[in-house]
Nucleic acid binder design. Structure first.
Lengths: 321, 321
DNA sequence: CTGAAAGCGCTTACAG
DNA sequence: CTGAAAGCGCTTACAG
């Protein structure tokens, strides 16, 4: 019936249609006092008729609203990211922030406007044009970089996930259990060795034990007595492969993952893992975000360049290791 | 050093600090042509000094930007929702929409401004004050309600997830396999029977087989020969319980879940399930969203009230059933 | 290469 | 109970 309108109705259109002024429309819409019932109904009817929807921009310009956080995660298909996102959502929501979630491909998100970015992608965040001084917090396992490319152009902080203590605990455990021929999984398609593989190799080397490094997904070589998967989902896959091959875990081969996924409790045997306290990560990361957004350089109140906080993984023995 | 500013710097503050006009600031920020290099540098320096961050509201008012979808999910801890959210994110992103993700507690999200809501929460969405005509699409397994409370106050559509065909296939399979004493799990804390339990009960009744209904989490009663869990995560838990009790699956007890979670491939034995094609759900739901947001009542172009589209579950036999 | 003006859609005091 | 005015922060033509 109605021809498609050339542009969306504004408050002025509603006012005209109802024969009132714009602020009377505001009153009707927000159920404010001091408006005749008949007037309100007329305005509401006009709004419905015109399919009027308030512009969040017009409103936002004039009313202080929630801040918006852009949360960038590498891959929602890996339960690691939803577990983290869930914590971030709750904590950010409690602090009055909205969360726009995106995977890297869609990360023009920030261009169109968020008040801060929390990046969980494993790759360096590149501050977009047109968003100078955008607060950015990056979370990752890489060591602190002396040169921080993000720092010159934006307010920047880090959360470093420190695998080292858990790696040492895990290797000590495996060696004590008799492991002498471990296999390490490297992320597929990586050219340079990842930090986690380096840490494991060094820890085994310190015990006089050489390691084999293979891409994740590779069948476990004969003669191996332990597999350190790249992450928990990788460990789940290794366990399935070994089960199908009829290899006893942990008797013949021990398996260790990384992440500490909640869903791991349903996998048999329950994998040993380098677990991360997701709630702690969320808390620490958001403290950095809030501090940066408020104009403080870091949660500690100091104005150091690229403040970095650490969260440690913790080795948890399951049934597989 | 810098005292905390009483209010955030605006483009006018930057202009004043750099000794230029506001549109010169815009030029510098957006790297537009027709500005002296020296001027640009001066402006950029002033912006950095004042920690200037453009207002997304000011900008949004004047430039057409991405639309924002509010995606409401019941519980990110259940992998079902991340799997769905992941699809929605990608498809919405490809269509130029941002996605604000929230769990129900935080759902004042919509108040502050989204252009549409996609609700996956299992409970009826209540349109907020101050957001008349907000397009809302609800996805759920409940049957169509003749009275749709959302419809009078907002543009509204549905996606109904239809369990019936898969339930019939599953029950036929179980009965053929010899099941005569099945247990159905009901969601905990529910007062009224859920649709899925009703469907299973009726299908078993049609085969002359009575069922027991117990709350999810209840230990499997002795004498049972099948458990229909409330969802896949529930089925994972049942499998773990049975394994610990030394019950053979599927020989002694068969187990069926609902959802078709990807992560199920790592659970032993891999559970039979009423699987949902998440990509299809996302596609169909977003078609409804886009249609409503554009002012059409439904994707089909008709202006029917509360248009509803269906997506069917599909029974997938795993190792547990 | 730079600036004065207009306008995006809304809400908040302030009058009447 | 209702309206005229001002202003939120930005960008886009248009002058010069």
């Amino acid at each position: 019936m109605n021809p498609a309108p050339r542009r969306a109705a504004t408050i002025l259109d509603v006012a005209a249609a109802a024969g009132v002024s714009r602020q009377t429309v505001t009153r009707a819409l927000h159920e404010m006092p001091g408006i005749a019932v008949a007037t309100r109904e007329r305005v509401l009817a006009a709004a419905a008729e015109l399919d009027y929807r308030p512009s969040r921009f017009g409103r936002g310009l004039v009313k202080p609203g929630a801040r918006t956080l852009g949360l960038l995660v590498a891959d929602l298909a890996n339960p690691y990211y939803p577990e983290l996102a869930s914590r971030v959502l709750r904590e950010a929501g409690a602090a009055g922030w909205h969360v726009v979630l995106a995977e890297p491909g869609t990360s023009d998100v920030v261009e169109t406007g968020v008040d801060a970015v929390l990046s969980f992608t494993g790759r360096a965040f590149v501050a977009p044009r047109g968003a100078p001084n955008l607060p950015v917090v990056e979370v990752g396992v890489e060591p602190d970089r002396a040169d921080c490319p993000g720092c010159p152009t934006s307010r920047h902080a880090r959360v470093r996930l420190d695998l080292a203590p858990a790696v040492h605990a895990a290797v000590a455990h495996l060696v004590a259990a008799g492991v002498r021929s471990p296999v390490l999984h490297e992320a597929r398609g990586r050219s340079t060795p990842s930090r986690r593989v380096g840490l494991f190799r060094d820890a085994f080397a310190a015990a006089g034990i050489p390691v084999r490094v293979v891409p994740a997904g590779t069948a476990t070589p004969a003669g191996s007595d332990a597999v350190v998967a790249f992450n928990d989902v990788g460990a789940f896959g290794v366990l399935r492969e070994l089960r199908q091959a009829g290899v006893a875990v942990p008797e013949s081969v021990r398996v260790v993952g990384v992440d500490g996924l909640t869903i791991g409790r349903y996998v048999t045997p329950r994998p040993s893992t380098l677990a991360l306290d997701m709630a702690e990560v969320a808390t620490v990361a958001l403290e950095q975000v809030f501090a940066l957004a408020e104009g403080r350089a870091s949660a500690s109140g100091t104005t150091e360049r690229c403040p970095t906080r650490r969260v440690e993984h913790r080795f948890v023995v399951g049934e597989s290791g």
